[in-house]
Simulated scan of single mutants.
Amino acid sequence: MNKPTPRNLPQLPGGAGAEEILRAGLEAAGGPVALASSFGIEDVVVIDLIRELQLPVSIFALDTGRLPEETYQTAEAVAQRYGVRIDWYFPERSAVEELERDKGLFSFRNSLEDRHQCCAIRKVEPLQRALAGLSGWVTGMRAEQSVTRSVLAPLEIDFPHGGIVKINPLAAWSEAEVWAYAEKKRLPVNPLHKQGYPSIGCAPCTRAVQPGESTRAGRWWWEDPEHRECGLHRK
């Protein structure tokens, strides 16, 4: 089967719902598809949608070695609720050892280059292994989360990861819609969300946001907003 291109991706109608996006994305992928979960509220909503629709989508997660305990608790709650297996991917041991030996435990705060190096080791390389052999992957990203995601299509071709289909079923959802769904379904929610953390990553790189700040203002808060991505969602 030929790989999809931007020209032959399904043309979804305006206002297409998450269910329609998921089904169209799986059809376009034409092969194995997995959800990348960090166990934030958006990802749990997508997991619930996938299970409710009985879609053939597996789940994987990246254990960077620096995740908050609450994230592990949420992952266990999700696994138990849905009876699903979560495939965990870890960074290469030798790369982490060399980084910490040469630059210390907090080199990511020294410069943007050093932070990108840490993310490349702990996130980007494991993601490449997780996506190997897949025809598509699902995310919980939303367009309103940050300036780096303001132009987010429901379906994309992920060229940096071999041209597979990237499926963003919540692209047009608001934060209020996400929370309304989670509360209606009584989904497992990362406890940090209710402590002021709308976006949760590695513990040293995540803080609670202040009133009026954007959703991702607590991620790498010492950097300019346009830099606050880890490299998982390269264009």
Score class of each variant (00 low, 15 high):
Ala24Trp: 03
Ser199Asp: 10
Gln73Ala: 11
Ala153Tyr: 13
Ala36Phe: 01
Glu69Tyr: 14
Arg186Gln: 14
Met1Asn: 11
Gln117Met: 12
Ser38Val: 07
Trp220Tyr: 06
His193Pro: 00
Asn168Gly: 06
Tyr197Gln: 06
Arg149Glu: 01
Glu156Pro: 10
Gln73Met: 11
Pro126Asp: 01
Trp221Cys: 04
Leu99Ala: 05
Ile157Tyr: 05
Thr71Asn: 03
Arg93Asn: 05
Ile157Arg: 08
Gly17Trp: 03
Leu112Ser: 12
Ser146His: 03
Ala171Gln: 07
Glu19Arg: 15
Leu35Trp: 04
Leu12Gln: 04
Lys194Tyr: 15
Leu187Tyr: 04
Leu22His: 06
Ala79His: 11
Arg216Asp: 05
Gly196Ala: 06
Glu76Ala: 14
Leu127Glu: 09
Ala208Glu: 09
Tyr181Leu: 05
Pro154Phe: 02
Gly136Met: 01
Arg66Leu: 14
Lys103Phe: 12
Pro6Arg: 01
Lys166Pro: 06
Lys184Thr: 14
Leu62Ala: 12
Gly65Glu: 03
Ala75Lys: 14
His233Trp: 04
Trp220Gly: 05
Arg122Thr: 03
Lys235Tyr: 14
Trp173Ile: 02
Ser135Glu: 09
Glu125Ala: 15
Arg23Trp: 05
Thr148Gly: 07
Asp43Ser: 15
Thr215Val: 15
Leu53Asp: 09
Ser199Gln: 08
Phe106Arg: 15
Gln145Phe: 00
Gln195His: 11
Val45Tyr: 00
Gly30Ala: 03
Arg66His: 09
Arg93Ile: 05
Thr64Tyr: 03
Tyr72Lys: 14
Gln11Cys: 12
Leu131Pro: 08
Phe60His: 10
Ile86Lys: 09
Arg51Lys: 13
Ala120Asp: 15
Ala176Met: 08
Glu177Cys: 10
Leu170Pro: 05
Gln128Ala: 15
Leu187Cys: 03
Tyr72Gln: 10
Gly201Ile: 07
Gly163Lys: 03
Glu226Ser: 14
Val84Cys: 10
Glu27Cys: 01
Thr148Gln: 09
Leu62Tyr: 00
Arg7Ile: 07
Val147Thr: 13
Glu52Cys: 00
Val78Asp: 06
Thr71Cys: 01
Lys194Gln: 15
Trp179Arg: 15
Arg149Cys: 04
Val57Asp: 05
Gln73Ser: 09
Ile167Arg: 03
Ala143Lys: 13
Asn2Arg: 15
Ser150Phe: 12
Ala34Arg: 11
Ser150Tyr: 08
Ala176Cys: 05
Pro6Leu: 01
Asp87Glu: 15
Arg81Val: 04
Lys184Asp: 13
Arg142Gln: 02
Val84Met: 12
Asp114Gly: 04
Glu92Asn: 12
Leu53Val: 05
Ser150Leu: 13
Gly83Pro: 06
Glu177Ile: 08
Glu92Leu: 10
Arg228Lys: 11
Ala61Val: 05
Ser150Ala: 15
Leu192Tyr: 10
Lys166Ile: 02
Gln195Asn: 10
Pro154Arg: 01
Ala29Phe: 02
Gly231Cys: 04
Val96Ile: 14
Ile50Ser: 02
His193Lys: 08
Lys184Ser: 14
Glu70Arg: 08
Gly133Pro: 06
Gly133Val: 06
Gln11Ile: 11
Phe108Met: 12
Ile50Cys: 02
Ile121Thr: 02
Leu134Val: 07
Cys202Ile: 04
